[in-house]
């Protein structure tokens, strides 16, 4: 029944060719209770590339992101239909262990959510529970490199024992990025990681993404067209729960195939 509102033109549009995708999303529908948040999404996420998700507020970007590491499991009323393959494995298969999946797919949330523990412990916690280090000094080194990677080391090096919650909003966001990359996931999902950052920190985070994508696949949600254009190689435009358009970033921004994309990136809807 919900398909009635669905525009058949979009689904028939040829999906761009992506060789060896790390994530393959096939006909995914997501419901919050009776309300459908995502409609028939099919999308491939390439390796070693940054894919940005853009679209007006409430269009389902966060919902989509949370499907990929099954954070939606935490919401009782949320129901996911369809298939999401990560490395060829359907992650909604009952045999899949979500704990292993989430260790494999890191996430930075829209709102910064550091643990109310020390800055050091925030970053070290993930490595501890996954037994990634054997010695104390190695742990210290890796905490430092994660914090450096998230462009926050210089600001916190003298206060590693202070609570992570005592940092400013932008610093907290970068601490959360450090926490996510510390466990070395293969895929990183970032939900507006730069929304609370100044241009300098934003530039650093964008640099980091460019660095990280050599080993990882990155999916980023952003409200900044410039950022999407700067950091991502692929862009997907969502609108009201539908995937309107997906393709190479330069193509989306220079010659969008859909009027809604055109309107959104030029600032007429959103």
């Amino acid at each position: 029944m919900t398909l009635q509102t669905f525009n058949p033109e979009i689904s028939t549009e040829p999906v761009i060719e992506i060789k060896q995708p790390v994530i393959t999303v096939k006909d995914v529908n997501v419901f919050y209770g009776d309300k459908q948040a995502l409609k028939n999404i099919s999308l491939d996420i390439p390796k070693n590339k940054v894919t940005s998700l853009i679209g007006p507020s409430g269009c389902g970007k966060t919902t989509f992101l949370k499907c990929i590491n099954r954070m939606n499991d935490l919401i009782d009323i949320c129901r996911v239909e369809g298939e999401i393959l990560v490395g060829g494995q359907d992650i909604y298969d009952p045999a899949v262990d979500v704990v292993a999946l989430r260790a494999h797919i890191g996430m930075v949330f829209q709102k910064p959510n550091p643990f109310p523990k020390s800055i050091f412990e925030n970053v070290a916690y993930g490595m501890r529970i996954h037994n990634l280090t054997n010695s104390k000094s190695e742990l210290g080194d890796r905490v430092e490199s994660a914090l450096r990677g998230a462009a926050i080391w210089e600001e916190v090096r003298d206060r590693l024992d202070q609570p992570g919650t005592s940092l400013s909003g932008g610093q907290q966001q970068r601490l959360c990025i450090a926490r996510a990359i510390a466990v070395e996931p293969k895929i990183i999902l970032m939900d507006e990681p730069a929304s609370a950052l100044d241009p300098i920190a934003t530039a650093k985070i964008e640099e980091l993404m460019d660095e990280l994508r050599k080993n990882y696949a990155i999916v980023i949600v952003t409200h900044s067209m410039q950022q999407a254009a700067r950091v991502s190689q692929f862009t997907a435009f969502f609108h009201m729960g539908e995937l309107v358009e997906h393709g190479k970033t330069d193509k989306i921004f220079t010659s969008p195939g859909d009027e809604r994309t055109q309107n959104y990136i030029t600032g007429r809807i959103g």
Binding site: N69, L74, H104, G106, F115, I129, C176, A180, V183
Partner: peptide
Amino acid sequence: RQAALGIGA
């Protein structure tokens, strides 16, 4: 909870 579960706890 999301923060902890999100890094694989």
